[in-house]
Design a binder for these strands. Structure first.
Length: 577
RNA sequence: CGGGCUGUGGCGCAGUCUGGUAGCGCGUCUGACUGGGGGUCAGAAGGUCGCAGGUUCAAGUCCUGUCAGCCCGACCA
């Protein structure tokens, strides 16, 4: 492609509103253009990168034995009603009514396709002989995100590769899952991403295993917990922490005191008012677990992990109690709850770390009052089986296996594999007969990749001050030819010859044939980030040489014009790997 | 959904407090010079200042409403 014949609107300045590198660079390099919040046009260069990512995904899915199909974005709302996901998705599900032959038809734009594919499978699979089967598609998804942001990292419409496996038993599901897991590893490696496969929260519905593929990046929306030593990696929502020592204080216990803390209803405010460490305080939160109130205690500087509470308590749902319920249960307004003197008898759970606390400060279950010098065992007690790991992991916590310490990092989720189980097959009546003529629901898995996020995550993690640094595998073009003077016949003769030869050799080549000064071309070359740049200039041609430079290198090397095309094509082929 | 910020030629911004001829840089167009890291000179085009209403002799500027975008938080497969 010749630069003058395509459409690459590069920009010198960062657009207003774009703040993170991937967003800024994708706009400046002419990859995308915003249409509205959460919706972007892929310009020619951006689309080429996206298609490269898509191709890698297809190749690896096919290699793993998955079979491609294509489902529509449009679907009848009734399908979503059957699985209860109209409520589950709520406002995220884009749905609307249209008039058709005088009737109103209620439609939804698919945010994911479990319903549609399970409905499909229920009509065509009836025997164990037809499985295992894994189907996939690459298609646009629609989610009315409450808050689209960060360029193409979180949008209302996005390109997703979604795969679904159908198996007869759990062992077979495990094999299907592992095949997808392996495929994902190959996909992200080929895309040049440094990723972590982390244990993920499988959520309240179905499934006993789930992994997310995360690219560590400061601007990522997710937080992962990682241990270099043991290799343990998990989403913060899921991450467990290792055993922590039971420290005992040698200080002489003092008597409990009730102290006034007017209007100090947060941990921060109380610690400031009483001039104490947040880690000496107890945070007491009232939750509703399956509609039943319970109190959860964690150290003041820790965060409660609701999923852990839900699992520890054995509840299906968990939510923070409303102000009314808190007042009813504790006898005090929000912010003054504590384990001593709760108005109602409710279960009290505590995080392991509470066990090693002494001389604590807690709410007094009375407006504007806290207790100080509180001791576990002396002033309140908690049943031994009500201690559990109930908080989010923190930097420096021991790893679950005790090997090394955990560190927290922000990350971008680019893929997710999930053992679904029978949630959808039961709801949509997708069953099969086994060899014993017994009927069972089909066992499913689902596997998603955000294709746009592969691009965004790559740019986010592979750039320098001057622009994007593409790996050969995703680069919109593999070689950029930069003739320095298009007015020089000699330069253009060599450039055009190279261009033709490289194209014939199957290389994706872009030639900057604009009548621009060299500085402009070099700046744009770095911004756009094509991996291999070949400069054709009068200076070099005098020696019969071209100048070849990798985007990530600062120094160029010389290459004789004779045989340059074959040489360059070879280098590209090698780098594609 | 709560909090904060921003809407002025294609892009980035100043001007708004204190009402009085709409400006700057980049980009674009024409011409000349120039030609290895975003050139120079000369000229030109391009804006109902997000939208609606109000106050005023006069509104980009003041008031009311509204729409859009961005950031933080809440929420979220």
């Amino acid at each position: 492609m010749r630069w003058t014949q395509t459409f690459i609107p590069t920009m010198k300045e960062s657009p207003e509103g774009a703040e993170i590198p991937s967003h800024i660079l994708m706009i400046r390099a002419g990859l995308i253009q915003q249409v509205m919040a959460g919706a972007y046009t892929y310009l020619p260069l951006g689309l080429r990168a996206l298609k490269k990512a898509e191709r890698i995904v297809r190749e690896e899915m096919d290699r793993a034995g998955a079979v491609e199909l294509l489902m529509p974005a449009l679907s009848p709302i009734s399908l979503w009603e059957r699985t209860g996901r109209v409520e589950a998705f709520g406002n995220v599900l884009i749905n609307f009514k249209v008039n058709r032959a005088g009737k109103q038809v209620h439609l939804a734009l698919g945010p994911t396709h479990e319903e549609i594919i399970t409905d499909l499978i229920s009509r065509h699979i009836s025997s164990y002989r037809q499985m295992p089967l894994t189907l996939y598609q690459v298609q646009n998804k629609f989610r009315n995100e409450e808050r689209p942001r960060f360029g193409v990292l979180r949008t209302s419409e996005f390109l997703m590769k979604d795969a679904y496996s159908f198996d007869t038993d759990v062992e077979s599901l495990g094999r299907s899952y592992d095949a997808m897991f392996e495929a994902y590893c190959r996909i992200f490696s080929r895309a040049g991403l440094k990723y972590l496969a982390v244990e993920a929260e499988s959520g309240p519905i179905g499934g006993d295993a789930s992994h997310e593929f995360m690219v560590v990046a400061d601007n990522g929306e997710d937080v992962v917990v990682h241990c270099e030593e043991s290799g343990y990696a998990a989403n913060l929502e899921r991450a467990e922490t290792g055993p922590r020592g039971l420290e005992t204080s040698s200080a002489e216990p003092q008597a409990v005191k009730k102290v006034p803390t007017p209007e100090a209803s947060s941990i921060e405010a109380v610690s400031k008012m009483l001039k104490c460490q947040q880690s000496d305080m107890i945070k007491t939160l009232i939750y509703l677990a399956d509609e039943q109130p319970l109190a959860v205690l964690v150290r003041g500087d820790h965060e409660v992990n609701e999923n852990k509470v839900r699992r520890a308590v054995g509840a299906a749902t968990i939510e923070l109690a409303s102000a009314d319920i808190i007042t009813k249960v504790t006898g005090a307004p929000v912010g003054f709850a504590g384990p001593i003197g709760l108005k109602e008898e409710i279960p009290v759970w505590a995080d392991f770390d509470v066990r090693s606390m002494a001389n604590m400060i807690t709410g007094a279950n009375e407006a504007d009052m806290h207790f100080t010098s509180v001791y576990l065992g002396r002033d309140f007690s908690i049943a031994e089986d009500h201690f559990a790991d109930l908080r989010n992991a923190e930097d420096g916590d021991p790893a679950p296996d005790g090997q090394g310490t955990l560190s927290l990092r922000h990350a971008i989720e680019v893929g997710h594999v999930f053992k679904l189980g029978t949630k959808y097959s039961e709801a949509l009546n997708a069953r099969f007969l086994d060899a014993q003529e017994q009927q069972h629901p089909i066992i499913m898995g689902c596997y998603g990749i955000g294709v746009n996020r592969i691009i965004a995550a790559l740019v986010e993690t592979n750039h320098d001050d001057n622009g994007i640094i593409w790996p050969m595998s995703l680069a919109p073009y593999e070689i950029l030819l930069t003739p320095l003077s298009i007015k020089s016949e000699e330069v253009m003769k060599v450039a055009n010859g190279l261009y033709e030869d490289l194209q014939s050799a199957g290389v994706d080549v872009l030639m900057d044939d604009r009548d621009q000064r060299p500085g402009v071309k070099f700046k744009d070359a770095d911004l756009v980030g094509i991996p291999l740049r070949v400069v054709i200039g009068e200076r070099g041609l005098k020696e019969g040489q071209l100048e070849v430079k990798w985007r990530q290198d600062s120094e160029a090397s010389m290459l004789p014009v004779d045989g340059a095309a074959e040489k360059l094509a070879g280098i590209v082929r090698e780098a594609r790997s």
